[in-house]
Amino acid sequence: MQGYKVKKIFSEDLGRNNPVFIQVLGICSTLAVTNLLKNTVVMCAGLVFVTALSNVTISILRNYMPSRIRMMVETLIIASYVIIVDIMLKAFLPDVSRQLGPYVGLIITNCIIMGRAEAFALSNPPGLSFLDGIASGIGYSYVLLAIAFIREIMGSGSIWGYPLLGDWWTNWSIMVMAPGAFFTLAIFIWIVKGVLDRKEIAAS
């Protein structure tokens, strides 16, 4: 039973119920940091950390929180974990922290974290909530990483800051600017939805 549930959590959060593709949640901070792969990796690590630990905390406290103020309590729990991430980034990766700017703080208003807290942590034990936090964090991250990969290689001809494509490549500077992010995500959603629809037709 337990094993089945764990497997279900992962397959739901990574595939069928992926927060970015299917629910289109939390894309504010998604798009902003995807112009460079390195920033995205840092941001994703922060997000997985905050989602998992806030899910655990909320799950432990779920029987003690008065339901009328639970949103406020959840926000404060999330905000305290975000402060930890912010301080750690400032201490260990000051350059990345400066580039990410306000977007680290905006993890607080990322709808995914609050959404998982409301939908999962409030009705499940801490262990499963932790796994759910990790799974939805990863589900969010791999989409971001794919978008960042495409944007960086097309926009600057490099990966992780190393020039990869050489001199013959003309940079598509539009890809590192705002419109590139919108178009890339839209095309991703298109492909994924197309694949899922085809699977559904094949299954029926």
């Binding site: 289109v24 539009i174 600017m177 705002a178 419109p179 590139g180 992010a181 919108f182 178009f183 995500l185 839209a186 959603i189 298109w190 492909i191 994924v192 939805k193 197309g194 629809d197």
Partner: peptide
């Protein structure tokens, strides 16, 4: 197109507006 309906096309419009 079916896969683009909803969020997908909204993002493309947002991209053109950003342009």
């Amino acid at each position: 197109p079916k896969g683009l309906a909803g969020a997908g096309i909204a993002l493309i419009i947002a991209g053109i507006m950003a342009l």
